[in-house]
Design a protein around this nucleic acid. Structure first.
Lengths: 194, 194, 194, 194
DNA sequence: AATGAATGAGAATTCATTCAT
DNA sequence: CATGAATGAATTCTCATTCAT
């Protein structure tokens, strides 16, 4: 990758980060290309130099954020952890993600309303991969007798669903710090698996 | 209430029901007044006879659905039930609601993006009242020693959050019936309180 | 057709007429929806009440103009005319059309640059039908020995092509009146068929 | 002309040739500077080193193509040909040009929609010069008794107009070769002058 | 000479909302 | 009451053009 290309790649990431921010603030539909550009002190025209259209921009946001989170999750398998510990850490990572990326993450919920044919299945696939990591932890835990649960998929849905909701009520000015929330969620949600 | 008023009130409810449907299908932003009217074989102009504007229409949808659910929840206190039983039934009612009203219910999540100043606090208030019923059950359960939990609010958030997420993945064509989902959720989520 | 519908149909025609005018003046690509609306003292938003989009609007322009001309051409077959006379009258009608509708007519030339998949073949079809009337006159004339020509299609192309070009140079302020042009074209182009 | 200048001049011609191609394919308005540059494996920014703007580029296309054609036409006067022969050859040259340069040539039709004040009259002038060659052949033919025609200008309009239209329908995959079309057009159009 | 990047002035289109009838 | 019609503000996207490097 040449210097030029590196620079361009960095710029693209900058844009994605700003976009995430604006989208998190206003919601996807309410975030206009103008808003996103303004955040970067650019003009909206310039965004189209880097991204073919708004959907593409969003798609790459989604990709960036989810990929980052997946890396963190996968790293858990390199450490020497019990399934319980793995799941607790995974929950914390997920809550962290949800709080930091708010809206962008939330849109995972109803991609059909946002993405077109060509992207939708890639989005769903990525989401499945992401969820798959949690499934893997649950399966391992069950296999090793650490977890006792029959409806494994359902348990995963509950865990991720509960954590996603944090986005809705959490505020840094609130009663709990992010770390406390992570801690409590990790503890309580683990109960479901026991 | 005169006959005329009664008729109007019934019409209003019809509209709200159609609106819920369309919004659940397409999402709030994607549901146009035209779509909503079309569902009722009306023209969009007519909607404005009954509702001041789109926000108002949505607000009343929200009101209608939540009020209905609250009635059902409150009825639980008239029966002679243990806290566990109450919570299980409450969860089932909530999951039922979430599945049936999908999007409309979901928008509870980010009212700031949709409602204006004047409505927002009323919406938040209603939501608090709704959540308050779950809090009440939890509090009673703790007082009576049925539940063992310290972070009571957080537990309630987890329960409602997890249940809200059902909206995202549930499909009537899927592996589980609505009743099975309700059953499993009620069972698993109760673990959090024990 | 109810009164309402008649009114709407008339309005649609008004719009088409204005659109033709503006398109004739500026060319299709340069004629903005705003321009077209302004000509009618409307706002561009209103145009979308009557036409789904710009292409649709243009398509109907095309349809209207060509249909009108075809009626006039077909009427020739009801009169008792020799093929020569028919062709002369047909040429006059065509020149009249070309002068009056300038650009709108011209765009027939390269519909691929303007119309999308769904409309293009309808446009081509219509164009073929139109040209078919000239073919019919030629064929009859040849059958009856009035015309002597081997490459019949080519002759028709020459006649219509030559007449289409009038659009480019004709000006009401110029040396010839419309009627004179029609007369001379009818006379000279007939030579090709003899 | 220095070596540098020669190189630049050659590059300019390359660009013009590519531009002609792209414009012929897509039409002037649809041909973006990007498209034209891409055809040459350049970036659009570079085009502005050679041409002031898009109009200028088009203007020079026009100039190049018409000048080339005029040279070929003028060469006819150096041969020892009858007026009939001259006109037939001229028609063939023109048809050849029309087929090869399609769109670029066609835009001669409505220069007002494309060129600005400063260029328009130069364009019109060039066009008149071009047409003037045909007029000259006609005048000579009439003077020498080879042609019999009163409305000489009109006859020229018919001849050029008919030939211009070839652009619209001709396809190399069609029934006739370019040479056959030229032959037939030359033969039939000559009838007008007799 | 060439290019990557940015810009800004439109253009088409959508849609909540209004209003006369 | 209901509707057809009109509006205008907002939004996405396009592209010729510019300019620092």
């Amino acid at each position: 990758m040449s210097l030029r290309e590196k620079k361009a790649a960095r710029k693209k990431e900058d844009i994605l980060r700003s976009a995430s921010l604006v989208i998190a603030r206003n919601g996807y539909q309410n975030a206009t290309m103008e808003d996103i550009a303004a955040e970067l002190l650019m003009t909206k025209g310039s965004l189209y130099y880097y991204f073919k259209n708004k959907e593409e921009l969003l798609y790459e946001c989604h990709e960036l954020i989810l990929s980052g989170a997946m890396e963190r999750l996968e790293a858990l398998f390199l450490e020497n952890l019990s399934s319980k510990e793995k799941m607790q850490k995974a929950i914390k990572i997920h809550v962290d993600l949800v709080i930091k990326e708010k809206e962008v993450f939330n849109l995972i919920g109803k991609p059909e309303q946002i993405f077109s044919e060509e992207n939708i299945w890639k989005v769903l696939q990525k989401r499945d991969e992401y969820a798959g990591i949690f499934d893997k932890i649950i399966n391992e835990g069950v296999a090793e007798g650490e977890f006792v649960i029959h409806q494994k998929k359902m348990a995963r849905m509950i865990i991720l669903g509960a954590a996603n909701w944090v986005q809705v009520w959490y505020s840094p000015e609130g009663k709990y710090t992010k770390e406390e929330v992570e801690e409590i969620y990790a503890e309580y949600l683990l109960k479901i698996l026991m």
